[in-house]
Design a protein around this nucleic acid. Structure first.
Lengths: 113, 113
DNA sequence: TATTTACTCAACCTTTTAGTTGAATATTAC
DNA sequence: GTAATATTCAACTAAAAGGTTGAGTAAATA
């Protein structure tokens, strides 16, 4: 693991972390506030946040004893871009196939004439 | 882990698996052919393929002793959609002054406690 | 029929995830 | 100053990921 995409995708692979991200997309929040809805210890959530920070999806700012977390959507660009490229590659291949088949059809028609 | 997104994102989190997917997007391939470029055992690649199959990104078809793998882009729709929703949520938040002010209010309330 | 080829399965090892509890640290509040 | 709050750090457990080697199965080939 070294590529940024590895960290981004790994971060997105867990439902707790995706839920945290969704909350943060709506605004900053403290660790305790984020952890409250989850049926797990504060420490567990703290670890999830660390993985989100490693992926650069979450930024931390200290205000006294509170750690205020904010959302950084930048890494999602690369993730989204990679996925969409895959989908594009697939459909372009399909297009090629369709074109080949269409050309074949044209040939058959030609032969019949 | 139960949600389909978990499997999809987990599958995409590894560079070897992303490379396999990229190859398969260009056309079907056998296990051995896929494994050839990688500096790891055939067995290791076989395991990666299993994770891709679990995520439903790869389909397997047997032809004699050969296992022919093909690419299924469907699960990428949900992944891409989730990510893009996150990005959209972010920008709509930036556009909405009311939400920023509401978030500020929430912070003040938090401090008073 | 014997061998090579194309794979998987099983067992094992190591590292990372995912969670726990308990203690430490630093602020804020009483 | 002491206590409560907000949070991490450290140590531990269990399971999953990522890899290895060795053995098994099934089909093609000599």
């Amino acid at each position: 693991m070294q590529h940024a995409l590895d960290h981004t995708m790994t971060a997105l692979a867990d439902p707790t972390r995706r839920a945290i991200l969704q909350k943060l997309a709506k605004g900053e929040a403290r660790v305790t506030a984020l952890a409250a809805p989850f049926d797990m210890s504060l420490n567990a959530v703290s670890k999830h946040i660390k993985i989100l920070e490693r992926a650069n999806l979450v930024r931390r700012r200290r205000e006294g004893r509170e750690h205020i977390l904010s959302y950084n959507p930048k890494p999602l660009d690369a993730a989204s871009s990679w996925i969409d490229k895959q989908r594009a590659a697939w459909s372009s291949r399909l297009d090629t196939l369709e074109r080949l088949l269409a050309a074949e059809d044209e040939q058959k028609k030609g032969k019949k004439r």
